[in-house]
Design a protein around this nucleic acid. Structure first.
Lengths: 208, 208, 208, 208
DNA sequence: AATGAATGAGCATTCATTCAT
DNA sequence: GATGAATGAATGCTCATTCAT
C-alpha cells in the first residue's frame, strides 16, 4: 500500500508510468512536435537520459501513451459489446465511455485527439484503432439483426459516423469551443444518442 | 489568352498558386512537420529562397492552404444555407460539398484532415472554422423552428456531431480504411443523412 | 589571378578546399574523434551548418581528405612507375615522394598516418590504397624480371615491407620520435634504399 | 586445483583478465571508439558497472591491453637480444615473435595495429614503445660493431624501417589484404629477413 | 563484489530563414 | 523576381561514469 511496498521489479514499471504521465501533460500543453524530450524529463523529475532507459525514442513515448490508453478503452468498449443490453443502449454505453474520458483525464484526451487520431504517428496503430471501429460496427450489425436498428443502413459507415461524432465532441472540449462540465458531458451523451439513434427528423407524434 | 498575356501582377498570383499546390502535394505525401521548405520548392520547381517572396514562413503556407480552401467550402455551405430547401435537404447539400471534396482533391482533403482539423496550427483559424459550424447550426435551428427537425435536441451539439461524422468519413478515405470511389461517396452521403436525420432506430412500419 | 577572378562555379570548389584544409589542421591537432564539426567550421571561418552544404558528414570530410591526397600521391607514384629508370631508382623515387610529403604538409601526413592507415575509416578506401601497393609491387616485379632485383623474393610481401618502412618513418616524425629536418629526411631516403635494396648484411669487400 | 581453490585475490585478477580478454574481442570487432563499455561488459558476462571496480575508465582498459601485451612482447624480444646469436638471426627471432603473434591471437594484433600503434591513446605509452625500438636498434648496432651488419647505415632509422615492415605485414593480415595461414606467416618471416638483411638488389653470384 | 538505475555533458545534424548577388 | 550560399538556433540521442542498494 505504501511506496515502500513496491518491489524492485515494480519500481521500473512505476517509473515508466511516471514518465508517461509526465509526457501526457507536456504533450497536452505544448503538442508533441513542440515538446522537447528534456521537457518531459523535467516534468517527470528525472534526467533526460533516463527516459531512454524506458523508451527508445520520443516517438515511442507517444505511441505507448496511445496504445496503453486505447487498449483500455477497447477493453471497456468490448465489455459493453458483450453485455446483453439492446444495441441502442450499447451505443449509449460506448458514448459514455469515450465522452467521460474527457472528464477523467482531459490531458490524455487532448493528446489522443490532437496527436494520434491522425497521420504519421498512427501508422503502426491503425490495426488497433480499427478494432475499436469493428466493435462499434458489430454492435450496430447485431442491432440490425435483432430488429432494434434499421437494416437499410451500411453498418460500417454508420460506425465511422458515430465514432466521428464522438470524437468531434471531444475535440470541441479540447479546443475550448464547447462548454465544459459534468452536466454538459451528460447532455452530449444524450444528444449523440438522440441524433444517431432517434434521428434529427421530426416525427408526427401520433395523436392519442 | 496566352501565358504571356498575363500581366505581372497576375503572374505573381499564379506563382503563389503554384507554390500552394505544390505544398498541398508535399504535405499530403509527407505530412507538414516532416516536409521541408526545400521539398515544397523543389515540387514547385523554384529555388527555396523564392518561397519567402510569397509567404513569410512555412507555417503561413499551411495556413493559407487551409484558409483559402476553407473559405471556399464556407461559401458553398452558405449558399446551401441560404437556399430555400428544407433543412434536411440542406444538410444533405452540406454533406455533398464536404464528401465530394475528397474526390475532387484528395491531397487537399488529406492535408485538411490531418494537419488542420486540430492542434497548434489552427490556433488562428478557430474563428473561421467556427463559422462553418455556425452555418450548420443555423440550418438545424431553422429546421427546428420550422418543425422539420425535432426541437428537443441541442442544435449546437448536433452540428458538431454532424460535422464530426463527415470528417470521420473523410478520414476513413484518407487513411485508406474505407472503400473509395464515386459510388462509395454517394453511399456515404446517403448514409450520413439516413443516420443523422432518420436515426438508426428501427421504426414500426405503419400497420395497414 | 586575384580572388575576384574566381568565377562562381569555382567559388564552391574553393570553399570546399578551404574546409578540407581547415579539417586537416584540426584533425592533425586534435585527432579525428576528438575534433568537433564546430571546430572545423571555426577553423575555416564559416558557420558549422555550411559544412553540410559541401560534405554529408564529418566522416565524409575525413574520407575526402584521404582520397584527394592519396590520389595525388598515387599519380606521382605512377609517374615514377612509368619512368624508364631502373627499379631501385624507381623505389628511391617513391620513397622521395612519400617522405618529402612530410616536409610539404606535416598536418596532412599526420592525419594520413594517424587516422587513415587503419580501421573503420578506410573501409571504403581499401581499394584505392591497394593500388598504391600494386604500383610498388609492379616496380619490384619489373626489377626482378629485368634482373635488377633478386627474383627469389615475394614481390607482394616486399612491397608491403617497403611501404611499411616508409610509413613508419613518417610515423616517427609525426610522433616526434625521429629527428626532423630536410637533412634528416634526406638521410631517411638514403637509409630505406640502403636497407631495402642493399640489405643490412655486411658484404665481404671483394679484395683487389 | 579447482576454481574454488583460487584465493580471493587471485579471483580478482582472474576477472580482470576476463574483462581484458572480452575487451580485446570487442575492440577487434568494432574498434575502440565504436565499442561501448556496455559491450565489453556484456561480452565479459558482467554488469557494466563492475568494470569500474577493475579499471578507472574505458581508456585504461585499452592502455592495459596494450601495456600487458607489449610488455610480454618486449620480454620476448629482450630474450632474443640477450641471446648470443648473430645479429641477423636475432632480427629473424624478433620477426618471428611479432609475426607469429598474429596466429596466436589475431584479435589482439588487430587491436594493437589499429588502435595503439598511433595517436592519442599511445601518448602515455610512447616510452614503452620506444623500448621496443631501442632493443631492435641495439641488435643492429651490435651487429654493426661485430661486422655482421654493414656499419654505414643509421641503426636507428633502420630499426624503424624494420619494425615498420613487420607492422605492415601484420596490418595486411588484419585488413585481410595479405593471404593468411601458417605457411604464409613463415614466408613473411623469410621475406622480411631476405629483404632487410640481404637486400633486394640482385648480386652477381661469384662463379666458382 | 555486483548490479543496473540514474546522471548529464557532449555533439552531429537538420532546416527554417536571411541576404548578397 | 530569382538563386542558393550562408547562418545558427534547436534538439534528439549516446554513453562514459557514478552510486545507492
Amino acid at each position: 500500500m505504501t511506496e515502500r511496498s513496491i518491489v524492485p521489479r515494480e519500481a521500473g514499471a512505476e517509473k515508466r508510468r511516471l514518465i508517461l504521465a509526465a509526457a501526457v501533460r507536456v504533450f497536452a500543453r505544448d503538442g508533441y512536435h513542440t515538446s522537447r524530450v528534456g521537457d518531459i524529463a523535467e516534468e517527470a523529475g528525472i534526467a533526460h537520459g533516463l527516459l531512454y532507459h524506458y523508451f527508445s525514442s520520443k516517438e515511442e513515448v507517444l505511441e505507448t501513451v496511445f496504445r496503453d490508453n486505447w487498449r483500455e478503452l477497447l477493453g471497456l468498449i468490448r465489455r459493453v459489446e458483450e453485455s446483453d443490453e439492446p444495441a441502442d443502449e450499447q451505443l449509449r454505453g460506448i458514448a459514455k465511455i469515450l465522452l467521460r474520458s474527457w472528464r477523467n483525464d482531459p490531458d490524455l484526451v487532448t493528446v489522443m485527439v490532437r496527436e494520434v487520431a491522425r497521420s504519421p504517428h498512427l501508422q503502426g496503430q491503425v490495426e488497433e484503432i480499427r478494432e475499436g471501429f469493428a466493435s462499434i460496427q458489430r454492435v450496430i450489425e447485431r442491432g440490425q439483426a435483432q430488429g432494434v436498428l434499421r437494416a437499410d443502413v451500411d453498418a460500417r459507415l454508420a460506425s465511422w459516423i458515430f465514432y466521428g461524432g464522438l470524437e468531434e465532441l471531444l475535440t470541441g472540449w479540447v479546443l475550448g469551443q464547447l462548454p465544459d462540465g459534468d452536466e454538459e458531458v451528460a447532455r452530449a451523451e444524450r444528444t449523440i444518442i438522440d441524433v444517431v439513434c432517434g434521428g434529427l427528423t421530426a416525427r408526427d407524434t401520433v395523436p392519442a
